[in-house]
Amino acid sequence: MILTFIEERKGALVDTSLEALTAGRRLARASGLPLAALLIGADLERHLPKLREFGAERAILVESDKLRAYSPAAYTKALVQAIKARSPKVVLASATALGKELLGRAAARLDLGLATGCTELSFQDGRMKITRAVWGGILFAEVELLSEPRLLTLAPHAFPAEPEPAPNNRLEVERLEVPLEEADLKLVVRELLEAVRKGVSLTEAEVVVAGGRGVGSEEGFKKLEELAALFGGAVGATRIAVNNGWRPAEEQIGQTGVRVAPKLYFACGISGAVQHMVGCKDAKIIVAINKDPQAPIFARADYGIVGDLHEVVPALIEEIKRLKGRG
């Protein structure tokens, strides 16, 4: 069996869990093993149609009122018990905060190997080929797991989520009882604070205007904000800009920040270090504005303007406004 952990939050399945389920289905079809989905929580039956749509042949539900709020220890116990009871060959989860935590703990408790942040998976001559992101994503590593079941977490958005029902469209549902003791429920989420959206989020923005050391100050970012607003986009920053206190940590793009894949990415006063570029390399078009013609960013950008950003960005804003004004 290929066992995929499916995460639900506030009554909805997490999108990237469906990526994991799709990846699990590909492995299941390539290996001839059945595809099972594991859900932990309460009121889980409502998710069965979605599991069927994505080709799960078996749903394993661990349901309890005690599992309504997330508790790392209780959820780990449920996952570990499912693995022990069903002896899957492979266990997959999306590398969300919860997925990383649960598989990390299960791997420790069962003394099994775990490959985190996988970006490619395939079966070749009965062997499983695994590629994972290392060095925060600036490099990839081909690895092999020597223990079974093989535990894997999948980098979000590295795999597509594509529905495809099982050939006979059958979904067997089974419930697993997991006795929970007080000790398992000592640490429970007390509160879930949902992020308040200030405008469009960085990861979803179609246009990102990012600034680096060259912007020079917190004040300097005002113009970048203005440019972003003209596109209905968001502002991003390099680690240097964040470390200098010019922008909040959430806006850092790169190896230790967020990854973005907008249609258009402006890199203003950014040198183009690999640790930064890993966060924006999937942008459709990168425009670099930098006063140093030798800056590495020009070798990675689609279009470059050599010059002082404090001149170029305002000129760009004026020109766009003029065009908009003309309609």
Binding site: F298, A299, Y303, G304, I305, V306, G307, V312
Partner: peptide, 12 residues
């Protein structure tokens, strides 16, 4: 890499 479009605001 792509194309350097020019220098300064003249390239806008």
């Amino acid at each position: 890499g792509g194309e350097i479009l020019g220098e300064g605001k003249g390239a806008v």
